[in-house]
Design a protein around this nucleic acid. Structure first.
Lengths: 343, 343
DNA sequence: CTGAAAGCGCTAACAC
DNA sequence: GTGTTAGCGCTTTCAG
């Protein structure tokens, strides 16, 4: 990477202002112990010269840094983009820089990225995105984060349990129960579920909620077709095709995120199947476009941007004795994609 | 921000491995001048101890850093989220950390963020998002970026002219011409344009392309209603209402981005106006959901993720004598939201 | 091939 | 209220 030569140093500013480097330092950082008149003069000189402090030097000397890290599966995904938006917002408010990295849902890459953040001595790390049902898959990350915390770093996660740190937990179980209840309440009995890989806790939780709702109704969830494909729009299309082929009598498709639901809607539309008259469709997350689809999507709203903000706020707070948990609310948003089953 | 105490230092590793700190440094950074056997041993010791280098110290000593900055208007916006995805992808490939910051389209905030990135001594800065038609609004940023470059920093912009640096330019003019030609070719003559603030170059350019198409057809663009509202979904709704009220005979609405087009579709749907039978609607950008709307959206595709990737690649290359320009292609994607005007 | 030592630019004791 | 100075943890000459 390019050499950053020729930049002004604090000494240059100090000399130009006719003060010592210590006074210059205090003036610019707003530390007490300098007369206001001198401080103001130094600041003016610095501004005129276009001085920009070297934050690496500052971090090294002070032992602290004004930056935090955010780990997401994929920033192009609206779910994470909105979370990131919340994180950046409070980051900006607090005067922090935010380093964002991708993992592509690969535990290995995730570990790499976490290490890099640690090496950058970020003051806090927010890890967003589902964890794995199999704890072994994130043992390495857990260990690294633990070491990081022991060295004084702060960690918060979004949507993960089992990591022993402050967590913001979307209400996946209750949300899953709520959508399922909604469909059951409308009278649907032949419901299919479109899901991603069940090794992700997010999915396992949502599914558990759905199962609860069936059980509460006295129905056997084992009879419900659960189609596991990619947790994406494309996956939704595939799931829809498969459901139509294998279970043609289904009257509702419960997709475990909006992305999949969008794919399902798309597949049904291209086959000319009326939603919700013939088949109802529901999603989960309430990404921004859910309301603008046609038919608009019935889904579970999760406050993603707030979740991001909250996670960073947790991470920034002094650590508590035991991990804090903040469960976000969820809200069933009934729109046009769900209705009673055909008579 | 939290104190990062207690972390291992290179000296600890050196001692444990029974070598000098210099040898340890060389071993870990892969520098030549160490026997492979010693180097391997040092690396093994470091791994066992869980040593993570302090990048601030490294940057300070080496005068270089493995990090870059990305400035976007709003990461929650799919347009920028996709650009960011491209940037993060090549960043990861190159082993760089990426700092992302928001500006909210506020030139002041933008300047702040750029300064912070400079202070962080990032090796390169990518600025994404439209600039301003009025150059004065970005003079300060221009000056700062100039100083940054003189100090050895690298800069690339996406979708901005007039900044005197390497640029990735979406083909806004040609794209604008292409959608307009599409509508004109279908036979539409009473077309309205829904646009955001014309002080943004992106918008000015797209509008110029649209005007060209009208001129080529021998039509006077001055007669075309151009409704300027927020460059958002909400703005699109407002624009649609206004167009319906003031120009009820319009047969097509050309929105200058997909977000607005989605808003327009939404407003038309809630009024029961058939698209494209009664009114055609077109967008611009081709965000991921455009294809899944109902009706699916006719729009101009811009390769956003590639634009982000390309921009970072440009920034990483050794600087050229004069600013490089890469104009991205555009592609008219005709879907279901546009058709011939009603007879 | 390896080690000693001089900084990188800044902060924070500690003097005055 | 201001200046002096010893590091922060690492890289990189320069000797050996």
């Amino acid at each position: 990477m390019s050499k950053q030569g020729g930049a002004l140093r604090l000494q240059d500013v100090a000399t130009a202002a006719g003060v010592s480097i210590a006074t210059a330092s205090r003036s610019l950082s707003g530390a007490p112990g300098v007369s206001e008149s001198v401080a103001e003069r130094v600041r003016e000189v610095a501004r005129q010269m276009g001085y920009v402090a070297n934050l690496h030097a500052r971090s090294l000397a002070a032992g602290t840094s004004r930056s935090v890290g955010l780990v997401v599966h994929e920033i192009g995904d609206p779910y994470f983009a909105e979370i990131a938006s919340g994180v950046l917002r409070v980051g900006a408010d607090e005067g922090l820089t935010v380093q964002i990295c991708h993992t592509g849902r690969d535990p290995e890459r995730e570990l790499d990225q976490i290490r890099t953040l640690v090496a950058n001595r970020v003051g806090a790390i927010v890890v967003a995105g589902s964890g794995f049902v199999d704890p072994a898959l994130q043992n390495a990350a857990r260990t690294d984060l633990q070491a990081y915390r022991e060295a004084g770093g702060r960690v918060a996660v979004i949507g993960r349990h089992h990591l022993g740190v402050d967590a913001v937990l979307p209400d996946n179980v209750a949300g899953g129960r709520a959508v399922a209840e909604h469909l059951l309440g409308l009278g649907h009995r032949r419901i299919a579920v479109a899901t991603g890989w069940q090794g992700l806790t997010t999915i396992a939780d949502r599914l558990a909620g759905v199962a609860e709702a069936f059980a509460a109704e006295g129905l056997d969830f084992a009879d419900v077709p659960v189609v596991e494909v990619a947790f994406t729009r494309e996956g939704g299309k595939v799931a829809a095709e498969r459901i139509l082929a294998d279970h043609p009598d289904v009257t509702a498709v419960l997709a475990l995120n909006d992305d999949m639901a969008i794919g399902v809607l798309s597949a049904l539309r291209s086959r000319g199947i009326a939603v919700p008259e013939r088949i109802s469709v529901t999603g989960f997350d309430d990404v921004a476009v859910a309301q603008d689809l046609a038919p608009s999507l019935t889904t579970i709203r999760l406050p993603m941007s707030e979740m991001g903000a909250l996670a960073l706020e947790l991470a920034l707070k002094p650590p508590a004795g035991r991990p804090r948990r903040r469960t976000t609310g969820h809200e069933l948003v009934v729109r046009d994609s769900s209705g009673p089953p055909p008579a």
